[in-house]
């Protein structure tokens, strides 16, 4: 062994944080939050420890699918500026290790969720992992500009799983929570793709701005934002929406539609002139949008628990 190989192996030695990074902690936080809201707003009760354990299983399942995504996408992650610091392109974790962690944690999380709560929730988690790792990552991402539209389903399942942990079933209300996140995903990612266009182009990922141009992407953002507002409004007619949700719905959708119109009215020259200021602020607003809707649902559930006996119901 030479000095050079010692230095090389030294650089490759992964810390615990590198393995944790494989689970995409930021995505996991969204999964945990929406699953928790699904669990809180569901009719019925579940033991707090079972609720905590179930959320943990959903988080691990979401993380496992992230590890499988990083394993499969290691080649394009090396090319993109946004992802080249991830553990595999950085040389900290090998592709085989990421695959092993992804498969092991997937099986572990599904089985443990089934044993802790019920097999409907476990089945939904298994389908979520399959959808993200196989349908989105392997089939859609590199083949169609609609990758985000269909693949967004994977990130939309957690509130349905949280709901199923309590009720053991799938209802129209839980499907509408799914639809909210599902319809939110395209405008959120297309706004990102507008100012990260060159990254996706370099990695040959067929994102909408790469395949159909930025004009078409701006049109798509506006149309999907309007459909999203209708979808979010549908939740108002369910038993889980109350006054908090009504306020969040009105304020956030007004802001989001205004943002989408601003993006639609701009062209590339204007965007480049201010370094995509409007697109960046729309992207940030999209994060607040989803957080506000689910937080409002959570508050409504808490308020109805506190004030339900006083006959204070929802807006409709």
């Amino acid at each position: 062994m030479t000095d050079a190989t010692i230095i090389l192996e030294d650089d490759r030695e992964a810390g615990f944080g590198d393995f944790f990074a494989l689970l995409k902690p930021r995505v996991m936080s969204l999964v945990v939050f929406t699953a928790m809201v699904g669990l809180i707003v569901a009719p019925g009760t579940v033991h707090p420890f079972v609720a905590f354990f179930s959320i943990l299983c959903i988080a691990i399942g979401g993380g496992a699918s992230g590890a499988l995504n990083m394993w499969y996408d290691a080649d394009i992650d090396r090319v993109m500026k946004r992802t080249k610091g991830r553990p595999i392109p950085a040389g900290k974790v090998s592709e085989g290790e990421a695959f092993a962690i992804g498969v092991t944690l997937s099986a572990f999380s599904v089985v443990m969720l089934g044993l802790a709560s019920n097999w409907v929730a476990a089945g939904l988690l298994a389908f979520t992992i399959f959808f993200y790792a196989v349908v989105y990552t392997m089939w859609l991402k590199r083949s169609t500009p609609q990758n985000i539209v269909i693949g967004g389903a994977a990130g939309a399942f957690p509130p349905m799983i949280g709901w199923a942990v309590v009720t053991g079933d799938i209802t129209l209300t839980s499907c509408l929570m799914f639809a909210l996140t599902f319809m939110w995903t395209p405008p959120h990612f297309w706004a990102l793709a507008l100012f990260m266009n060159s990254d996706y182009d370099k990695a040959k990922v067929p994102m909408l701005p790469v395949t159909h141009g930025t004009r078409s992407t701006r049109n798509h953002i506006l149309v999907y934002t309007l459909i999203l507002a209708i979808t979010a409004g549908a939740l108002l007619f369910t038993s889980i929406a109350g006054w908090c949700y009504l306020v969040a719905f009105v304020v956030m959708n007004a802001l989001f539609i205004v943002g989408a119109v601003k993006i639609w009215r701009r062209d590339d020259a204007a965007s480049k002139a201010d370094n995509f200021k409007t697109e960046r602020s729309f992207f940030k607003l999209s994060l607040v949008y989803l957080f506000a809707h689910f937080t409002a649902l959570m508050f409504d559930a808490m308020l109805s628990g506190l004030l339900g006996g006083m006959g204070i119901g929802g807006p409709f």
């Binding site: 030695e13 992964a14 810390g15 393995f19 420890f49 943990l56």
Partner: peptide, 24 residues
């Protein structure tokens, strides 16, 4: 240090797993 963080992290995860299964 990196190797130690990995070992300590794994030990904590396994310890947490035992506690969670016991609690469940």
């Amino acid at each position: 240090t990196r190797r130690k963080s990995r070992n300590v992290g794994l030990a904590l995860v396994l310890g947490l797993f035992v506690v969670l299964i016991l609690g469940l």
